[in-house]
Design a protein around this nucleic acid. Structure first.
Length: 297
DNA sequence: AGCCAGGCTAAGA
DNA sequence: TCTTAGCATGGC
């Protein structure tokens, strides 16, 4: 008979687990009946649930509780004071402030750089449901199996594992024209041609240039990796949603203002936690779109 | 049926 | 320096 894994608890403030995990930063957390979530961080399966100011967690396999609690704090961005982040935002920006209120507790996750890179390489011109499907196939076929009483899960395949696959095997994970790029990027990362672990020590500009040496990685994907996987809180990825929000809010609805202009503006306007501001705008623009659809139907 | 999706790249103005 | 077509594929 299975012995229940030890359960850990963390007191949290200004944190919304569901808003964070559903915000399109990470692609393989699953809802559990009862309000919790299950997903994989590194080589462990985590079950997490928030009740008010308490975050409860369990892992498979089990491990040193202090170490795991630290890992959770790091991953969920709990070592950042959200009120401080928000205090750095432009105070006269009513739209941003409203977005922050509507998604209060949403935090930037600290993911593994490689998983983050591969995930966002897969994201190019894909909808979030499709990205989840690609990642699911990639992990199920090429990751290590982790069996739990919540189901079977898979670790994310390493750079060496992906580098050893064929383009055909990657295409079979529905990667399409992204397959050869991911294969080359995995080989470059494995061989240290681009060292993902050294990115956090570099300047933002230097780290971005380094990532953009990888085929299939431009400014958008590069900044996603820096923000979600390397701790660059100021990295500001501009995708179609954020571009739409910026055009509407700051360029008088001019949808032709262009992504380049939007990037230049954002780097001046939002400050040291621009990436967090980006995530609030991203989520709020998508919420707005959903509301409009419902109203029309 | 047709449009668009958390883009990148090479080519041409 | 800025704009555009093409890239695979699936959801709506």
């Amino acid at each position: 008979m299975l012995v229940a894994n030890p359960t850990g608890q963390i007191n949290v403030e200004d944190f919304d687990l569901a808003a964070t995990l559903r915000s399109g930063q990470a692609f393989r957390w699953h809802d559990l009946a009862g309000g919790g979530f299950v997903g994989v961080i590194g080589d462990r399966v985590w079950r997490v649930k928030q009740d008010g100011n308490v975050l409860t967690w369990q892992t498979v396999p089990a491990g040193n509780p202090a170490f795991l609690e630290n890992a959770a704090r790091h991953y969920f961005g709990l070592d950042v004071e959200l009120k401080h982040v928000v205090s750095t935002f432009p105070q006269d920006d009513a739209a941003l402030q409203a977005a922050v209120r509507r998604h209060w507790g949403l935090r930037i996750l600290r993911q593994e750089p490689w998983e983050c890179l591969a995930s966002f390489m897969a994201s190019a011109t894909k909808q979030i449901v499709q990205i989840r499907q690609i990642i699911e196939l990639l992990t199920r076929r090429h990751g290590d199996r982790l069996t739990t009483r919540w189901g079977e899960f898979y670790s994310f395949p390493s750079t060496a594992t992906v580098a050893g696959l064929t383009e055909r095997e990657l295409r079979d994970c529905k990667l399409g024209f992204r397959a050869p790029n991911l294969l080359k990027a995995a080989r470059m990362a494995r061989d240290g041609v681009v060292n993902l672990d050294q990115l956090p020590g570099k300047s933002h500009e230097e780290a971005l240039c380094e990532l953009m040496r990888l085929p299939g990685v431009g400014e958008k994907i590069g900044n996603c990796v820096l923000l979600f996987g390397c701790g660059f809180d100021n990295a500001f990825p501009v995708d179609v949603w954020v571009a739409r929000a910026l055009c509407r809010l700051y360029f008088g609805g001019d949808n032709k203002a262009g992504i380049r202009k939007a990037r230049a503006f954002a780097s001046r306007h939002f400050g040291p936690y621009a990436g967090w501001a980006q995530q609030y705008l991203f989520c709020d623009e998508r919420r707005r779109d959903r509301d409009e659809r419902i109203k029309r139907s």
